[in-house]
Design a protein around this nucleic acid. Structure first.
Length: 575
DNA sequence: CAGAGGTTGATCCT
DNA sequence: AGGATCAACCTCTG
């Protein structure tokens, strides 16, 4: 490109100034630079029919986080002599209009591996090349280029059998299916010991943008959302400035960084979370994962000893790349059907169970408190996510992981297509992880970290006066205690009734008859284990070719087993 | 094809 | 707090 012409940098993720190759390249030698963000109504427009405040695809917490991130980007750009140009509409159409209107010769945007952008970006690139516009689309969202990893990974079908199927021809490798093999292929990132940061001191000016429908970064209200109370909204503020502040805060405690062991974190810690809470900033690219990587490396160089992947802090960033690689290299990664790495399992399609889980009324306080934190904060600890995901799918309710995935995808401020789907595959024992006998107890897991139940008391204030002896299993509290705690189970707080619609009197009677609880996690989890064993068996005999009919037959069998042992009979057997 | 290992289970035991 | 045991899956390695 001849220097002295116009460039456009298109922000999607990568909402930052630091370590932003697309921005740097766009700025180099241009007379005018147009920094653009397109507000896609499909993602941002209020949808009153959704189950929570927000658009059709995103809860209001994440929309707000995005707007804050954009406002921060705009303010940073202004300090460099530029500004953010916000436009509304279908991104492709808006972009084509801008390219024409402003006579753009160079278009720069961060490469994105998600299916949505893969499809959109092909259109954009085709348009640009037909119009003689240079396109620069660097990989800067992840540590590695997922395509490189897949290329390097020896394809099973090529190596062992020397045959070529359609997939191996197109794609010489498949993504590694375990973290360890991923680490081995990935190695050190090429840039690990080189300087990433070129400090930008000024940017080319923005050209004439009159009559182009440019606006400032809108507020939630300007987008048509109603004002809501502070305590209904996430405590985490969006933006690059906030990300770097948070990063600095974490890195300052060198001991903590060096000793970080993810599985040892306390999921019930909420006043001071046990992790960095940098995930939402990584999701939107307010924080560069590569810069984060280098910061951790710096700390590790200066301490005597440190933890290692998979549990270390660096290991967490590598998990992110692991899931990005798996997601990029697996067709239909976000579905069970047609997903070659996903076990085919006849999950329930029970919308009532799903709604009880989603709306925090399962009757298990540990589970419900986590779901309230999800709705209010849009963030909860990784292990808390494990508990509710396990409970919904393979642990207790046997509801399809795709349903839970949808709820997380909407409500999490850090929801990330690759990572969210990857973790649901993991937790439901559909892929990556297969030890389905390891089930999180909705009662004892939380108790181990928080015996007093402070986390439950905070997010489920109705239970705030329940004595700690009963707070994880309030249905076991004698009625006198429930009365004193101003929380009658079955009236003020649900009893776990997804299996047993008993009235309170029967419930009370049962409490005198059994030392075990009425709706037993024990019973539900045992049934789930049996179902998973049968489903695994089916997958084995069908050798990865389970069809709709197979699943239907097995689903019918599960239903028959359940009706053979009705609730009343089950109780009589016990008494 | 056997054996080792797998980020984060629960329970009981010391 | 840490270890053994439970029951037992899959993937990777040699």
């Amino acid at each position: 490109m001849a220097s002295g012409s116009n460039s456009l940098v298109w922000f999607r993720k990568g909402i930052r100034i630091h370590d932003n190759p697309a921005l740097e390249y766009a700025a180099k030698g241009s007379s005018y630079l147009y920094p653009v963000f397109v507000i896609d109504p499909r993602y941002m427009e209020p949808d009153p029919t959704a189950f929570s405040p927000g658009s059709a695809r995103a809860g209001v917490n994440r929309i707000r986080f995005l707007l804050e991130s954009l406002a921060d980007l705009d303010s940073s750009l202004r300090k460099l002599g530029s500004r953010l140009l916000v436009l509304k509409g279908e991104p492709g159409e808006v972009l084509f209009r801008c390219l024409k209107e402003w006579d753009i010769k160079r278009l720069c945007f961060e490469y994105d591996t998600e299916p949505y952008y893969q499809a959109l970006d092909i259109k954009v690139k085709n348009y640009a090349s037909a119009a003689g516009i240079e396109v620069f689309s660097p990989v800067s969202h992840t540590l590695f280029n997922p395509a490189d990893i897949i290329q390097k990974f020896p394809s099973l079908s090529d190596d062992m059998y020397g045959c070529f199927d359609e997939t191996s021809e197109k794609n010489s490798g498949r993504p590694p299916s375990s973290y360890q093999s991923f680490l081995k292929i990935a190695g050190q990132p090429s840039w690990a010991s080189s300087a990433l940061l070129t400090t930008i001191t000024s940017l080319p000016p923005v050209g004439n943008v009159e009559n182009c429908g440019i606006s400032n970064v809108p507020t939630l209200q300007e987008l048509g959302y109603e004002e809501s109370g502070q305590d209904e909204l996430t405590p985490f503020r969006g933006g690059e400035s906030e990300a770097l502040k948070r990063l600095r805060g974490a890195m300052d405690d060198k001991e903590w960084v060096a000793k970080f062991e993810k599985p040892k974190g306390d999921p019930s810690a909420f006043l001071r979370p046990a992790t960095t809470v940098l995930s939402p900033y990584l999701k939107f690219g307010c924080l560069s994962s590569r810069y984060f990587y280098q910061c951790i490396q710096d700390v590790q160089k200066n301490v005597k000893s440190h933890t290692l992947p998979p549990v270390s802090l660096l290991g967490q960033l590598l998990w992110r790349d692991f899931f990005y690689t798996a997601a990029f290299g697996t067709p239909n990664f976000d579905r069970m059907n047609g997903n070659r790495i996903c076990k085919q399992i006849p999950w329930n399609a029970d919308d009532e169970l799903l709604a009880a889980w989603r709306d925090a009324r399962t009757g298990f306080p540990w589970i419900d408190a986590i779901m309230v934190q999800l709705q209010k904060w849009g963030w909860m600890h990784h292990l808390a996510r494990h508990c509710v995901a396990c409970f919904l799918t393979r642990g207790d309710l046997f509801v399809h992981w795709e349903k839970g995935r949808d709820v997380f995808e909407r409500l999490l401020i850090d929801s990330d297509w690759a990572i969210n789907n990857g973790n649901w595959l993991w937790l439901s024992c559909s892929s990556f992880f297969y030890q389905y006998n390891r089930i999180y107890s909705p009662i004892s897991f939380g108790k181990k970290y928080d015996p007093n139940g402070d986390y439950i008391r905070y997010f489920l204030p109705i239970l705030k006066d329940m004595p700690k002896e009963y707070i994880y299993e309030p249905w076991t509290a004698p009625l006198s205690i429930q009365t004193k705690a101003k929380c009658i189970i079955g009236k003020d707080y649900p009893k776990p009734d997804h299996e047993s619609p008993y009235d309170l009197q029967v419930h009370e009677w049962l409490m005198t008859q059994f030392d075990k609880i009425v709706v037993s996690h024990d019973t539900a989890s045992k049934e789930c284990k049996n179902k998973l064993a049968e489903a695994y068996e089916l997958n084995k005999t069908r050798n990865g070719a389970v069809n709709e009919e197979d699943l239907k037959i097995l689903r019918r069998k599960f239903e028959e087993n359940q009706s053979q042992e009705p609730k009343s009979k089950r109780l009589k057997n016990k008494s």
